[in-house]
Design a protein around this nucleic acid. Structure first.
Lengths: 164, 164
DNA sequence: TATTGTTATACTCTATAACTATA
DNA sequence: TATAGTTATAGAGTATAACAATA
């Protein structure tokens, strides 16, 4: 088990990594915001799937997924086919144009990372990937398990209260 | 230098880490969204500072910083003192109430991470912190250096390689 | 009655641009 | 003229809730 100071530092790093994400977002092709890029990437990796499956992989609510998918479909990058096994479902599939868009995405992100991480070794990048993957796994499907808050210590603690 | 497949995977992990951040955000105290928490955390760590310095640490535009600071100041968690050396500037300082709020933040995030990362070793957490820190450093202050996009492969590459 | 997916609404975070007040 | 900070506006991402269609 790690120490408290480490946890605080990790929390800080998680908060700050947003800057990196935003930097990545700036190179995305027109009409293809981060949400759309994530949809294309996951469909490219895992193949055709239903909305619910995609929402799970994206780790966002299905309403959010629906919006992203709508954006992507409106541009002809994916198609939504009815699921013969369940008429409520829709099967998502990349179109050839979607594949092209995905290739363009790969080119851009790869190029950016190659530039930014020019002095990283293969092993270092691999290690970061492994740790981030594990981090996500450790949080996993906690979206249902609200977690126990530490007893709300509104009053006396280690620190003297500001007597009002 | 790492391989392309690694860069794509890292991009995916960066995109997906948002789920972890959102999970962390759900435990924040009332009236204290992530932006406010970041302001308090950085002031607690680095001590009093000016807006511009805080904006740099947050790695966001100063207009964004101004909004977050306004929110935090409105709740009495920080004070904005005039800078005697430069009347355009304002020095930010945590109040005792801000310190309490910061303690509560620490408690909650520490508790959550201790729960989620119960099976992580001290060394593993430290490694993730080091790699994320380095990642941020590698991206660094690239907000000014727009970066060269890979030649827009729409038609033939009219312009190639940016020879430094 | 429960589940899949969509839509409406609201909130947070962010950047750009216009503005003020100082330097 | 340039810089520090504020505010207005707009865009992206997300969650909740209400809803439709089907299981």
């Amino acid at each position: 088990m790690a120490e408290q100071a480490q946890f605080e530092e990790l929390a800080r790093q998680l908060s700050a990594v947003g800057a990196v994400k935003r930097d990545m977002g700036r190179i995305l092709p027109p009409d293809c915001p981060a949400g759309s890029a994530a949809v294309l990437t996951l469909l490219g990796r895992h193949g055709d799937m239903r909305m619910s499956k995609l929402a799970e992989l994206l780790a966002v609510d299905m309403s959010v997924t629906s919006r992203h998918v709508g954006h992507v479909a409106a541009r002809g990058w994916i198609e939504r086919h009815p699921d013969p096994a369940d008429k409520r479902s829709r099967i998502l599939r990349l179109t050839p144009e979607g594949l092209e868009q995905l290739d363009e995405l790969s080119r851009r992100t790869t190029h950016l990372l190659a530039e930014r991480l020019a002095d990283w070794t293969d092993e270092e990048v691999g290690q970061l990937i492994r740790l981030m993957t594990r981090l996500r796994a450790s949080f996993g499907d906690c979206r249902s398990a609200p977690l126990r808050l530490p007893a709300p210590v509104v009053e006396e603690t280690t620190r003297t209260p500001a007597s009002t």
